[in-house]
Design a binder for these strands. Structure first.
Length: 269
DNA sequence: AAATAACTCAACCGCGAGCGA
DNA sequence: TTCGCTCGCGGTTGAGTTATT
């Protein structure tokens, strides 16, 4: 998988575990921005980290990679998760494909900590005491919630107390300039530096590689690959939930315009 | 104010798939 | 074909935080 055995990290040193320090984040971020990750197992060695490659990969995907959208999930996002989960089950990475800027881990956590309860609440709701199947009642309820809410993106029960502003996290160290197309400058001299499978992780990967190329775009393109029998994800996303306005035409490019102007060929050489 | 229950979320673990030797 | 390795994924854990009693 893109990592020749000759490149194998030959180290038996004890790997550090636990939370990442800002210094480690910086090292990892700088290294990947400059060289790409290439072979994950060699990343910690080259970046001067005492972590294993797996840990680095996870940290990058869930926390450091550019374009991550932090903060509370919007109603639209949550309903999209419900809809996708209904079709895909616990395929968090596939669900994440349809939620730009969200990692599979984040979605999974949110599901277990909140959405599952919301689902069961809906199932227990008085309306569900009728003979209609739980699934239907769930989605009827969801639609009712949508309809009854005049501000679906902002007025959310459980989120009212929370600040909807993105959290300030280490990912935000990636200055906007690094991604606004003015440079691939100090930390990334040119696009070729990124030719080593610059993988944005599970939430974008294949589909988004097309997005990165600036060619395709939108949800229609996104839905060409997965084949979930007769069920069209497109149908779900275009359904009453109306997510389309949540998915930018260019995906992550909206977050960091410019930097993704190199081709997929370059990215995945 | 203290104790404790509930919740959140970053990170680890184990497994299966894919790939090269 | 087999073996060894990496990668990616889903499940799970546990530390830290917040809410409740």
């Amino acid at each position: 998988m893109g990592c020749k055995k000759s490149e194998k990290a030959k180290t038996t040193q004890k790997h550090k575990k636990g939370l990442w320090s800002p210094d480690e984040d910086l090292k990892l971020k700088n290294h990947i921005m400059k060289y790409g990750h290439g072979c994950w197992s060699s990343v910690p060695l080259n970046a001067g980290l005492k972590r294993n490659g797996k840990s680095c990969r996870l940290r990058w995907i869930n926390y450091l990679r550019p374009g991550l959208k932090r903060g509370a999930f919007s109603f639209a996002e949550e309903d999209k998760i419900f809809a996708l989960h209904r079709v895909l089950g616990n395929k968090w990475s596939q669900i994440a494909h349809h939620l730009p800027g969200r990692s599979d881990n984040e979605i999974k956590n949110h599901w277990h900590s909140y959405l599952k309860k919301r689902l069961s609440k809906l199932a227990d709701a008085p309306s569900s005491s009728s003979k209609s199947p739980p699934q239907n009642s769930t989605f009827d309820s969801l639609e009712n919630m949508e309809a009854s809410s005049t501000n679906t993106d902002q007025s959310i029960d459980h989120q009212q107390d929370k600040c909807n502003l993105p959290k300030v996290l280490f990912a935000e160290w990636l200055s906007h300039d690094q991604f606004n197309g003015h440079n691939h400058g100090s930390s990334c001299s040119n696009a070729q530096d990124l030719k080593y499978s610059f993988d944005y992780g599970s939430s974008i990967s294949e589909d988004s590689s097309t997005q990165l190329n600036g060619e395709a775009i939108g949800t229609e393109e996104i839905h060409t690959k997965p084949n979930f029998n007769s069920i069209s994800i497109d149908d779900i996303l275009r359904s009453p939930f109306g997510f389309d306005d949540q998915i930018s035409e260019t995906g992550l490019v909206d977050y960091f315009p410019g930097v993704f102007n190199f081709s997929c060929d370059e990215l995945y050489m």
